[in-house]
């Protein structure tokens, strides 16, 4: 059994256009100590998947309408708020895309790390502070004892992301969800952060769910990959298999394209954009942008099939793509 098992997860949002389905039967699994990359463009549902695991979908307007999120067998979608609080930070931790805004500007970084420690471990304030300083040192922040007393605005973006990582690993979680952890950073800093994440995985044995739109990050970090499009997983398999022999036209497009500067913009290799969720029809959500589209693609939605390297594409399944 996997450490984290997401089964047929359905999440809906109430919008002006009525209820839209943001996640439509997403299934993912993450084994202890491995890295799973969840890949896709903005709006494909990657971040919502991550927030569902944390139980942080804001409700209303969001709602988990079906499926399960099992952490070591326990279904978190039916857990009490108190149980979820005990899980958050302690068993599943998360780091976010924007290190500039993800830290509280009026609290010192040391305080923010120590708070996480105090919430989940039986420690005194000063022990927690010592621990926080040790963590800052561990994630490569020079003169950590002094920096711990700094406020977020006194640190660079890369430093802040290191602080976020220190906070995330502070309670030795089993799962670390990293939502586009390097998107907002300099290219040189990006590599350092990936190295740090790999190091954390080695030292703490934490399983990482890396959410990204960057295939370069996938090749550097991931053991396995799940590609998402319009709220569904459309391809999944071992990282090497998917990168070397992608089956879905969308995945091929992602691999072919150089990440554009303005992520979230249109991808160079794939014309068009992700369709708005409330305008999805009955067929394959990618049909409008697909170069191989056939009549059948617009009539029914392909299911994810195919064992270890599975794909949701009629063409790939039938061998004409």
């Amino acid at each position: 059994m996997s450490l984290l098992q997401i089964d047929q997860l359905r999440v809906t949002f109430q919008t002006r256009h009525g209820a839209v389905t943001a996640l439509d039967g997403v299934s993912l699994s993450l084994n202890a100590g491995e890295t799973l990359a969840v890949v896709g463009e903005s709006g494909c549902g990657k971040s919502i998947t991550a927030l569902s695991v944390m139980g942080l979908i804001s409700s209303p307007p969001g709602r988990i309408a079906g499926g399960a999120v099992r952490l070591a067998g326990e279904d978190l979608t039916h857990a009490s708020e108190a149980r979820l609080r005990a899980v958050r930070g302690a068993e599943v931790a998360m780091i976010f895309q924007e290190p500039m805004t993800s830290l509280n500007p009026v609290l010192t970084v040391g305080d923010q790390i120590a708070e996480a420690i105090l919430l989940h471990q039986d420690m005194t304030r000063s022990e927690a502070w010592t621990q926080a300083v040790a963590l800052l040192d561990r994630v490569g922040i020079p003169s950590a004892a002094a920096r711990a007393k700094d406020y977020p605005h006194q640190l660079s973006g890369g430093m802040r992301q290191r602080v976020m990582i220190a906070m995330a690993v502070s309670c030795r979680p089993k799962v670390l969800i990293a939502d586009e952890p390097t998107t907002a950073l300099d290219v040189t800093v990006q590599a350092q952060i990936f190295d740090l994440l790999n190091e954390m995985q080695r030292d703490f044995g934490v399983a990482i769910m890396l959410i990204t739109h960057d295939m370069g990050a996938v090749s550097e970090m991931a053991d396995r990959v799940a590609v998402m499009y319009a709220g569904r997983v459309i391809e999944s398999g071992a990282a090497d298999d998917v990168l070397d022999a992608a089956r879905h036209p969308y995945t091929r497009g992602l691999i072919g394209c150089i990440p554009s500067v303005d992520h979230g913009g249109a991808l160079a290799e794939i014309p068009g954009v992700v369709p708005p969720l409330h305008l999805l029809g009955a067929g394959c959500a990618f049909a409008e942008r697909c170069a191989h589209v056939r009549e059948g693609c617009r009539l029914a939605r392909p299911e994810l099939q195919g064992g270890a390297h599975s794909v949701a594409c009629f063409g790939a399944q039938e061998g004409w793509v």
């Binding site: 944390m54 609080r85 899980v87 958050r88 930070g89 998360m94 805004t101 993800s102 830290l103 509280n104």
Partner: peptide
């Protein structure tokens, strides 16, 4: 609605 509130919730803050 700020990101750091989400961060606080993500670490299990009541």
């Amino acid at each position: 609605g700020a990101d750091y509130i989400r961060t606080a919730r993500a670490k299990g803050t009541p």
